[in-house]
Amino acid sequence: MIKSMKAKRTIGNAFIYVILTLLSIVWVFPVAWLVMQSFRKEGSAFTPYFIPKQWTFDNYINLLTDTSKFNFPRWFGNTLVVAIASCILTTVLVLLTAYAFSRLRFKMRRPMMNVILILGMFPGFMSMIAIYHILKAINLTQSLVSLVLVYSGGAAMGYYIAKGFFDTIPYAIDEAAMIDGATKNQVFWKIILPMSKPIVIYTILTSFLTPWVDFIFVSVIMKDNYDKYTVALGLFQMISRENVQKYFTQFCAGAVLIAIPITLLFIKMQKYYVSGVTAGGAKG
């Protein structure tokens, strides 16, 4: 009886291994293709076959050294600066907002939460023109600062997950601290925050990603100022009609270079990401 159960389980697991392997192939396939393209020597944009006929490192070398037309290293630096700044700002804003909605009780709490809920439903890029002119009015366009503001400006609206996480921390802990004379400010920084490592890392991770992938907002804000582009917009220039033939393989190389740090970050932080979103997402 037990043996047959075991056999059944082994068969079941074998079946799952097969499925997982197949799925992994499907998922890794485009990634592998991207990597192969980045090492392809044949210059053109499009090949009707998957595996390059000749291999080379030149795409990477050119990308990093030939900066006269596409200044990839600079764009990478810009993105890194923006990503770090905006992830710090976003994290602070999100955590404070979440804390307020989770822990504090005030008159406007529920109306504010409802307003925030519906605000997220208007297509974002429609407001770009307005945002651009607002930034222009305060003399901030075409600067990295404005980009940080744009990425973090609406960030507080994504407080749900963090609030869900805070909700799982028993309120008794706060009460105990407050009886000891701690202010709410102290409760947040000294008690809640140290207990919230997963959600802090989750927030940092998600907000760090945005500048690397956005190409719409940055194009409206930076316009013709090439020196202030981020990698995403910069890479996009490489596949415009006039450039795609010559630069497609370099575009792939650039994409791989973006993906590497993000992948490493994700692998390293996966544990926290999962536990952060688990506790937070469970209550939304």
């Binding site: 998922w27 890794v28 990634v31 991207l34 992938v213 993906a259 590497i260 994700f266």
Partner: peptide, 11 residues
């Protein structure tokens, strides 16, 4: 599976 998240969607 996570690797695919790391590659920007536009790519």
């Amino acid at each position: 599976f996570v690797t695919t998240i790391a590659i920007p969607q536009f790519v």
